[in-house]
Design a protein around this nucleic acid. Structure first.
Lengths: 203, 203, 203, 203
DNA sequence: CATGAATGAGCATTCATTCAT
DNA sequence: TATGAATGAATGCTCATTCAT
């Protein structure tokens, strides 16, 4: 098999693993199912990843990378401008959209689910997702404060709270991700969050 | 065996089930382990609950009842008084303590984990926990607004945000419940949440 | 409970046992099912019969008694008369009807099925059914021979062959009891059997 | 493992299955026992046959093939010759020997036993055994009739009766296969059957 | 390296049987 | 005696993992 073929197989296995693990959970996911969905034989999975646990970790890491990239791209859009509220609302809404994406929901679910068995997943994911987003957002908020658009604040804490005001209500309303939330409800949550945030943090 | 004995066994099984399911997840939990931990024979579990799935649902429901009761008791402490900030901070801190309790963390984890397989868990738990707490808190906030201590607000939205300001940051800091959070950090989060909340909602 | 009640329960259990054992076979039949079908609690079955095996034997014996009675009644109808062929045909047809009755088929099936596990069933049933019928028929044939209606014959052997000529073809045509055989086919088999029998044994 | 090895395992499993199923019946037979007797692991059985039921059907079919082959070979020996009675007696005796063979008895027993649960067994077995033997014998009898050695007859009916005259008495005397029948008793039954048959059907 | 086949260990569930009442 | 409840011992079937090719 060509090198390219080998790489393809590895990627196919990872994709299938992400799919199956998020759909069924670690325990319930069968390696045969993953292999079948990837179009390879079961031992090929073992040749590439050694055992189910390793496959699981790598699949999680890959998913976390993807989710992180999306979120960072959103935070990156937050630029100072004439209308700070509008800018924040746009970012807030966009983050909610990402947050509610199926793969995003599934990853958070899976992570939560298996943290008991694999506590180190936190380290795999933290450096790749949650904290990095908070940090990036904190950076932006710091610059906005420096620019006099926000009052003096603890950037990390403010970023934490901004994100909390977004994701907290949406978790409730999406029934922990089991229900689709309509776009106007996303906008409503985003606006409410930004309103509260600005009341508390506007310069 | 006395009727009391039967009830005891049922309760013992439910307790063991909660323990084992939260420790291992639905798929990985073994009915034999639950039976052993409850001090009964495996078929006794089946006599009482019919199958693993039913046992799971009932164990979840029982845990949700317990967690709800704790949280409602905390919200119930929120009374108007001279020092609104102090009152809110006390309630906030107390809620965080509940939120970080091992059984609370475990229940949320398990719920998240198995929502894919058992979407109806949401209905079992919602009526018993999450929404009820938000509602109770919304009631209190409405009365505070009526009493002129808070500005006019949408009580449910404000309650959602108050809770989000508490639980969002704590999820991050506890690494999704994998790390104990020291009490002074709980106080810090509580104070920061109340500070932001009052900046946004004080009359 | 009255003595009568006790007897009723015993009978109800036996009836239910016959029903369930013939429907499911010994191994597959559940004592709980029998108890439920009899309207008693499982331990009541054990109080009356000790264990599943004993219950099985007694149920078989009761069924065998019933089947024997039916068959003997038929053989008993065989009287000498003007038209020997017609008399034999009537008895032959009647025996086939009995042979094809559901309970008769079920009993033979069950007996065959469990002879491996319970070889002594043969003794329970033989004295009650198969041999007794052959003997009774042999008696009649002997009298017919004495009366000069049949040639000299070995009565037992002739009876065996008469029965074989009836049941053999019918087993094949009923596909071992899985297919209902129409009445005119029963008559055809009966006539063919009697024809062959008379060709071989008429005086 | 070589392809040959795979085939060997499959055959070993089938052989063990036939052995165990006939010994214990479908319900009582344990797949682990079959696997052990075949010298393979339990999942190998499932890899080859999917489930217990399929294994059962295939084992039955294989046994039926074997039994059919034996019986056909016997019928095939029936050639016209100087001494028709002797020819018929030889075939009759030979058929009885086959009929009383342990595997033959066991297959009939098992078939009867499980027809309630698996009515389609009839179709599996009929085309492979019972009817084919009757047909083959009917063919021979037709030729003997054509050759003027037997009177005009309905070949199928005559074949049915010939077989019935053999197997009916032998079932009774072997106590449904629970008792070995001595060879001279087999000869006696064979001769008696042929005698009756020739009295009824000789030209 | 990829695969078809094999396996040891495990798991949900059932059942005949027995206590305690 | 009749019963609700409990249990030890199976049993069919699955799964992660490993060879032999």
């Amino acid at each position: 098999m060509t090198v390219r073929g080998r790489i393809d197989k590895r990627a196919a296995i990872l994709a299938a693993a992400a799919e199956v693990f998020t759909r069924e959970g670690y325990g319930q996911a069968g390696v045969d199912v993953i292999a079948a969905e990837a179009g390879v034989a079961k031992p090929t999975v073992y040749n590439h990843f050694g055992d189910k646990e390793t496959l699981f970790r790598e699949a999680i890491a890959a998913e976390a990378d993807r989710v992180l990239a999306e979120h960072l791209a959103v935070v990156d859009q937050l630029r100072d401008g004439d209308d700070l509220r509008a800018a924040l609302e746009n970012v807030a809404h966009h983050m909610l959209v990402c947050h509610c994406e199926e793969r995003s929901v599934a990853l958070r679910r899976l992570l939560n689910a298996e943290l008991g068995r694999f506590p180190d997943l936190i380290d795999i994911v933290r450096g790749r997702a949650a904290d990095r987003v908070t940090d990036a957002l904190a950076d932006r908020l710091a610059r906005l404060a420096l620019a006099g658009r926000l009052r003096r604040l603890d950037p990390t804490q403010a970023a934490e709270q901004f994100l909390a005001l977004l994701t907290g209500p949406i978790e409730a309303r999406s029934r922990l991700g089991t229900r689709r939330v309509a776009d106007d409800e996303l906008w409503a949550v985003a606006r409410a969050a930004v309103d509260t945030f600005l009341r508390a943090f506007a310069a």
